[in-house]
Nucleic acid binder design. Structure first.
Lengths: 140, 140
DNA sequence: CCTTGACCTAGAGACGACTCTAGGACCTAC
DNA sequence: GTAGGTCCTAGAGTCGTCTCTAGGTCAAGG
């Protein structure tokens, strides 16, 4: 059982900094309370690493820490609050979908502009930079 | 010609706050210098609104203000620096693609978890919440 | 012993992108 | 002539998410 991990090891495994891990603990973002050894040092398990991996994924989807905390609390509470968890996750799912649509739009714009510049480099002319940009909005 | 817009009108049209617009001017994010009327008030044009719309789209794709400023500078400089503009936009294109992949991953996780909770509500059992989460990583 | 290195706490600092405040000018309408 | 509305500047404050500092404990190695 290598189920005894130091904060440094967890930092290495999760990509979070040691500082961030202590911060996360203060913020109540661990599903299980963090144990301590005789000297007061934090002792983590592989489960903690897994949980942090999950949190990191949620964070990467733009979920703010308070929402992650709310979710953590639901998990800590134990079984029976699935409806709330589902609600929370569905809300995040929506936010992710919205974000993805927004990114598509931005991507379209960027690629349109890249096309414009490619044309310009081939000697063609466009009278106004801003107009060139904006036409992507006007004819989507 | 309704080419004379006040800061309040621009705020309304772009969704940016009046404060943000003044901030953007200080930060050099306008392609053309902002004109003033006799009383020192800012006078904007539709072109400014279009430019801001473009900036907002870029910002929405996660481009930080300094990058938008660099881009603005290139545009202000005039024709001939397309290679640099292309480079800048390509870099952003890459960042957007990376973000989208990340969002896909997060979305997979969220949906997986939603499935788990749906099952749980139908009476099936899963021994450990964290394990349920993590399996999505282990068997993608 | 003394150093090194990993860890501890409480709290300050950084950074991005605004957002707001204080104090004031100007114009129009009552 | 004063109230209301929009605008101005300079600069302070906010929020989220860390990141770093100061000052200290503890264990192992030379």
């Amino acid at each position: 059982m290598s189920e005894q991990l130091s904060i440094g090891q967890v930092a290495e495994r999760t990509g979070l900094s040691v500082h961030a891990l202590r911060f996360y603990e203060r913020e109540g973002l661990f599903a299980n309370p963090v144990r301590r050894d005789a000297g007061g040092r934090r002792v983590f398990s592989e489960d903690d690493v897994d949980w942090l991996t999950l949190c990191t994924l949620l964070r990467a989807s733009g979920m703010p820490l308070p929402a992650v905390r709310r979710y953590t609390e639901l998990v800590r509470e134990g079984d029976g609050n699935w409806r709330q968890r589902i609600e929370l996750l569905r809300a995040q799912e929506q936010r992710v979908l919205t974000q993805m649509q927004q990114l598509e739009k931005s991507l379209d714009l960027i690629r349109f502009k890249l096309g414009v510049y490619a044309d310009l480099m081939n000697g063609e002319t466009v009278d106004n930079d801003v107009m060139a940009d904006v036409s992507v909005n006007k004819q989507p």
